[in-house]
């Protein structure tokens, strides 16, 4: 079997494996054993070990290695490992699955402009967006407060204003 195909098969098999299985360690392995296993794994799958392989093999090795890093990082930190063990019992193989969750889109991608509803409110919100993008929280807060005056019942907008106050407090302290 060519090396690329062999790597690809192994890479695809990782999705069905727990972190313990990826690194090939026992559930009760101590941190030294986990580190040793990670090193052995790296000897085979680190992309630098594949400089003489075809370029696609190197890319696949890189993908495999990244999964081992995820496993190593999780299992070598007691807090994460505890959380993972708990999740694993419920059949979750990854601490933070790469698959997107079904939760609603996070608020962080919504600009203030998208939250405002009145013409005036949108105008102020746009200004606040621009100021936020420039890192000018203080002036953004003034503009956002103006937008809120036009839209007193817009809870999302006033929530953002509240967040901005908090951010300003944090930066001044």
């Amino acid at each position: 079997m060519p090396i690329s195909d062999a790597l690809l098969v192994f890479c695809q098999s990782l999705d069905a494996k727990s972190y313990y299985e990826i690194l090939g360690v026992a559930r009760n392995a101590d941190s030294a054993a986990i580190q040793e296993a990670f090193h052995s794994f790296s000897r085979v799958y680190h992309p630098d070990q594949h400089v003489d392989s075809p370029p696609d093999a190197m890319d696949i090795a890189s993908d495999i290695f990244k999964r081992a890093v995820e496993a190593y990082r999780c299992l070598s930190r007691p807090v994460n490992r505890e959380r993972y063990d708990h999740d694993l019992k419920r059949g979750r193989l990854r601490l933070e699955p790469g698959r997107p969750s079904s939760a609603p889109p996070p608020a962080d991608v919504r600009t203030l402009e998208t939250l405002a509803r009145t013409l005036e409110g949108i105008a102020f919100a746009q200004k606040a967006d621009r100021l936020l993008a420039a890192g000018n929280l203080a002036d953004a807060q003034v503009e956002l407060a103006n937008a809120c005056k036009w839209e007193p019942y817009n809870h999302e907008l006033s929530e953002r204003l509240h967040l901005l106050y908090e951010a300003l407090e944090l930066s001044s302290s």
Binding site: M1, F10, G24, E36
Partner: peptide, 26 residues
């Protein structure tokens, strides 16, 4: 060789890691 870890597709892949004893940076 310290056989600590036997990955599933080890035989064919181990051949690829022929520079086994060169240093590896992580």
């Amino acid at each position: 060789t310290r056989g600590l870890h036997k990955p599933a597709t080890s035989t064919s892949i181990r051949r690829g890691g022929k520079k086994k004893k060169g240093p590896l940076l992580i």
